[in-house]
């Protein structure tokens, strides 16, 4: 197992290298002179030159890249050009919001998608199957920002049940926190539920036609036991993989959803950084998002291998 883990980590080094080059290159060509952002329009040329020297902008681009990588490895993400706040502190306050949003969305998606997928597969070609499959297609086609907007119109503006925007940390007021998360979680979870539902249905259909399921039935096992114990356990392996691989889409969805509900997460940090031409902020947030995707993909890969004993690890 450790050999396999090590091999996967070594294999991902070139990918991480490419990712870091892309992030660095893209954020370094952001339009606008950073000295104007820090010093404003009325600073002298001498002040600007000193700041450029200070920020290392006069170094060759390769040196700048290596310095950036060195700082990242030592946990130093730099400072915001606008607020001068350490990026690490910004990440520390925003990361929990995005993690909470994505985890709750994932839980909602699984709790809707898996049971509905099982029912759709068990009742194949019946009204229940058609309804579940249609709902999945609708869920997957709903743009995050539109669904978010419709929820605000209905639950906040029309019925006044939930706050339309804003965020309260869980440790400050758990109830208010959950209230502020309901609509964003439904927004992302609905689309994800569609994907989980379809994957569960397909996997269940494949498993239900296997010999061992027929054997279990012929032995007189109760249908509930056949479905839950024999079929679902095996069908969940590809479902778990899809859930893991959807982390990228979830985090992409979080960016837009955070914008709709004014949630102070990583997504709004990226968007705020882009509009403020604050390249260290954009760099820091994107680095964390992509690292999270890479790590979750790696864990998914390892989990898949661990869950399915047929997969040889080394």
């Amino acid at each position: 197992m450790w050999k396999y883990v090590l091999r996967r980590i070594v294999e991902s080094i070139p990918v991480v290298l490419v990712v870091s080059v892309v992030i660095f290159s893209v954020t370094r060509i952001l339009p606008g002179d950073p000295t104007f952002i820090v010093l404003g329009e009325f600073a002298t040329e001498a002040q600007r030159a000193a700041l450029r020297q200070d920020l290392g902008l006069n170094d060759p681009i390769v040196v700048q890249y290596l310095k950036w990588i060195g700082s990242l490895l030592s946990g130093d993400f730099g400072h915001s050009l606008r607020s001068h706040e350490p990026i690490v502190d910004m990440l520390r306050s925003r990361l929990p919001v995005t993690i909470e949003l994505t985890l709750l969305s994932m839980m909602l998606a699984i709790s809707i998608g898996v049971p509905c997928g099982v029912i759709a597969a068990r009742k194949r070609n019946t009204l229940a199957d058609v309804l579940a499959s249609t709902a999945a297609m609708v869920g997957m086609a709903l743009p995050f920002f539109w669904l978010g907007m419709l929820l605000i119109m209905l639950l906040s503006v029309h019925f006044g049940l939930l706050p339309p925007s804003g965020y309260v940390p869980f440790w400050v007021d758990p109830l208010a926190n959950l209230k502020s998360m309901i609509m964003p979680v439904i927004t992302i979870g609905t689309a994800m539920a569609g994907t989980v539902l379809r994957q569960t249905r397909t996997a269940m259909l494949q498993v239900l036609s296997q010999d061992y399921v027929r054997t279990a039935r012929s032995k007189g096992a109760h249908e509930f036991v056949v479905v839950m114990k024999h079929a679902l356990r095996n069908a969940l392996i590809p479902v778990a993989t899809v859930v893991g691989l959807e982390t990228g889409s979830l985090l992409g969805g979080a960016i837009v959803t955070e914008a709709v509900f004014s949630l102070p997460g990583l997504g709004s940090m990226v968007v705020g950084g882009i509009f403020g031409r604050d390249f260290p902020v954009v760099q820091g947030a994107i680095t964390v998002i992509v690292t999270a995707v890479l790590v979750v993909n790696l864990i998914t890969d390892l989990l898949y291998a661990a869950l399915d004993p047929r997969i040889k690890l080394a």
Binding site: V19, L251, G252, I255
Partner: peptide, 9 residues
Amino acid sequence: GMLAFPVLV
């Protein structure tokens, strides 16, 4: 490396 990025990001 490029595929590691979420599309929107």
